[in-house]
């Protein structure tokens, strides 16, 4: 898939408590969660986020709790994908499982809020439109590609159980 959009720039160690604070975890409704996405790190996010925007960040994005509500809130906000220098491992799994594309790259270093980038998830290429510079991302492991091909963990479970 290819996504082209404006970026929201965040630092290292963005944890799941700021992505979606626990005070809103008494529901798992994506729309409700999206209303408070990133609220503790960036109050402008929910007001200005647009369908197709991209989040770029530093190391260890999504650290902390295992709440799947975090990638769900991001996805329900309209964000097309997240590109960070690295991800916490639970967030990484969760994002795949709920169908939020994520890629590892250092592209954040040259970006400012609302710069535009183009992300090619299959080729693992990220292009910065203002500079024309292209970054490559580590490839997605084969097993996870298969997981994506079978349509996520749910369909994989169906295949496995023959239901």
């Amino acid at each position: 898939m290819i996504f082209r959009g404006r970026v929201w720039v965040y630092p290292d160690n963005v944890d799941t408590d700021v992505i979606i604070p626990a005070r809103y975890l008494n529901t798992s409704d994506p729309k409700e969660l999206a209303k408070h996405c990133m609220e503790d790190i960036d109050e402008s996010f929910t007001k200005e986020v647009k369908e197709g925007d991209i989040i770029v960040a530093g190391f260890n994005f999504g650290s902390g709790s295992s709440r799947e509500h975090a990638p769900i809130a991001i996805k329900a906000s309209g964000v097309a994908c997240v590109v960070a220098k690295s991800f916490s491992r639970i967030f990484y799994r969760n994002a795949f499982n709920i169908g939020l594309p994520i890629l590892e790259s250092r592209v954040v270093d040259e970006l400012e809020k609302f710069d535009e980038i183009e992300v090619d998830t299959e080729r693992g290429k990220i292009k910065v439109l203002k500079s024309g510079k292209v970054y490559s991302s580590s490839v997605i492991p084969e097993f996870m590609q298969r997981l994506i091909e079978s349509g996520g963990l749910f369909n994989y479970a169906k295949e496995l159980l023959g239901v």
Binding site: S66, E68, R93, N94, N97, I98, F143, L153, L160, L161
Partner: peptide, 20 residues
């Protein structure tokens, strides 16, 4: 190890989970 809800739902249903 900790995982998200979907992973654990998968484990509830299949008794399995994938690990790197």
């Amino acid at each position: 190890t900790g995982m998200g809800s979907t992973d654990v739902g998968f484990a509830f249903a299949t008794g399995k989970s994938w690990f790197r």
